Simulated assay, not measured.
Amino acid sequence: MTVTVAIGEFARLTHLSVKTLRYYHEIELLEPVAVDAGTGYRRYSVAQVERAHLIRRLRDLDMPVPQIRTVLAATEPAAREATLRDHLTRMEAELARTRAVVSSLRALLTVAPPPLRVDYRVEPAFTALTLTATVDRADIAAWCGTAFERLYVTLLEQGITPGGVAGATYSTQFFAEATGSVTAYVPLPPGAELAPARGLDVVDFPASRFAVAVHAGAFEDFDRTYGALGGHVAEHATALPDEPVRERYLIGPDRIDNPAEYRTEVCWPITEGAPR
């Protein structure tokens, strides 16, 4: 016969508070083996202690409840390992992002930004293979990764070499509303004949005038470059607020693994004519 204990004793055995155990019962993650119909008192089997220990460790790793259910339901060690490995990979990516943000914050508080070089130029017209979607700002890195992979794979499958530096355009709504239209593009070489690809479009970009600055490094302090360039434009030129900002990825994740070596042109749309 399996020995059972009251919820308070089970809390002492597992280092899970009574409040937590009640919550896990409510969400059916760790249910007591018996509940008294009159008093509502819960009793747990000592055989459940190991399961409780596993749940506590997974929660200490901030694993979401649905993934914990997957681990608990897995009968094969390989299935458990796969779920744990996926979660740890996400944690490592989040840790790397946190470190980058901390580094950016320290620089913001202690290091004066270098003088920003701003060039004014007219970007010539070009034709590009594009993918457009409404994207939340929080999802932009993942979306761009998927979008550019699809664009490059499509060109590769059709034997077409990109005709220039890839980039993306960001609508005003993307910044103002934290969600908006984004277009990823890869320029096509002159005369390229591209077979139709579902969800992708071939777009003619007209010649446009920009104030341009280069952002060096990762994207955690991208806002500083945007702020400096936008402020410069406000003082020395006339911006086109309804036109999308363009980014050109001179050196990006598709070419190098070290974010510190990324180089991105930020192209701020301005009116025709010389800067005022």
Rank of each mutant, 00 (worst) to 15 (best):
Y249S: 05
T83W: 09
D257H: 13
V233A: 09
L250V: 03
Y41S: 13
L155Y: 09
T183N: 00
L54I: 05
P32H: 01
E177M: 03
A234T: 10
D136F: 12
A197D: 07
Q173Y: 10
E81L: 07
P190H: 11
A234C: 02
R90Q: 14
T70M: 10
S104D: 13
A96S: 11
I68W: 08
A107Y: 07
I68P: 04
A82W: 04
A74V: 03
T4G: 06
D204V: 04
V65C: 04
A168G: 06
V111K: 09
T179M: 09
A274S: 14
T179S: 14
L72G: 08
V71F: 00
V65R: 02
A11Y: 08
A237C: 02
E76T: 13
A213D: 11
E261V: 06
V5E: 14
A34V: 02
I160M: 03
I27K: 01
D36E: 15
A107L: 11
T132E: 15
R85H: 12
G167W: 00
L131C: 03
P162C: 12
A239W: 05
R97W: 12
K19R: 15
L88K: 01
H53V: 04
G38W: 10
D204S: 12
Q67M: 12
P196Q: 14
V46S: 14
V65W: 09
D201Q: 14
V182E: 01
H15T: 14
V35S: 13
L21D: 07
G191C: 10
T172D: 15
L200S: 00
E149D: 15
L21A: 04
H53I: 01
